[in-house]
Design a binder for these strands. Structure first.
Lengths: 116, 116
DNA sequence: ATAACGTACAACCAAATGGTTGTATATGAA
DNA sequence: TTCATATACAACCATTTGGTTGTACGTTAT
């Protein structure tokens, strides 16, 4: 498998795609099994075309793949992309944790903080 | 610290906020130390007002806090929110992993049947 | 007291987003 | 062949987004 760094616009598209409850629900559903677009659309109170557009957004964000199977298009998750996004957020946590390790920062925070 | 479940629209706002390279850069910068809005704005090729709006989006997404300090407003990261988002994505990875385990189980069952 | 600084916010604009309906096309079933 | 199904996509629309400029206001420095 080829692993390359995500570009800014790829990351934009990933988070943009995840910023919608319907699309997150679609991602959830296809995590456990492939679903046709029609099967997915049955769960939402919107037109088929709208759901199809959501799938397209997810596909362009590399969060799902579509695999034609007869006249159906099977939507499957791309767990690698979800993993990349997770790693990105964990990197933020790492950077923050390293800051916390700096002793002078801890002392400064103790002095400044009144809330808990 | 009070921990409660994130609502759909809170999650929407978090990922929406992260879906912009400028805002992700702001998040990165404030991870290691608080920055005034003006200090942040110096790094970007856009108006101060635009940067201020980005900070506002991050604040509404609970990704940063603003703390007034004289005439400056210190922007700091809310690592808990970043952690929640990370956890959410890890949950997706978990669900996917369990699916993979189920497939392993099925294969194992087949093997057992063959053996008996 | 006055000037400069840091921030906030309104009004405006172009482009993107999230939905709709309608139409076209390919595949599978009868 | 004909009909129903699954998908694709264009055109349209209202709202949101990401930027701008201009103005106002509290705080600090001179």
């Amino acid at each position: 498998m080829v692993v390359y760094e995500l570009t800014d616009s790829e990351i934009d598209r990933i988070f943009q795609a995840l910023a919608d409850a319907t699309r997150r629900d679609i991602v959830s559903r296809v995590l456990t099994a492939g679903h046709s677009v029609t099967a997915l659309a049955e769960h939402y109170d919107m037109s088929f075309a709208a759901v199809q557009k959501h799938v397209q957004v997810l596909e362009r964000a590399l969060l799902v793949t579509k695999e034609r199977h007869g006249r159906e298009q099977l939507v499957n998750s791309r767990i690698d992309t979800i993993g990349r996004a997770a790693t990105l957020l964990q990197a933020y946590e790492q950077i923050w944790a390293q800051r916390a390790l700096r002793i002078d920062d801890i002392l400064a925070e103790d002095t400044l903080k009144e809330q808990s």
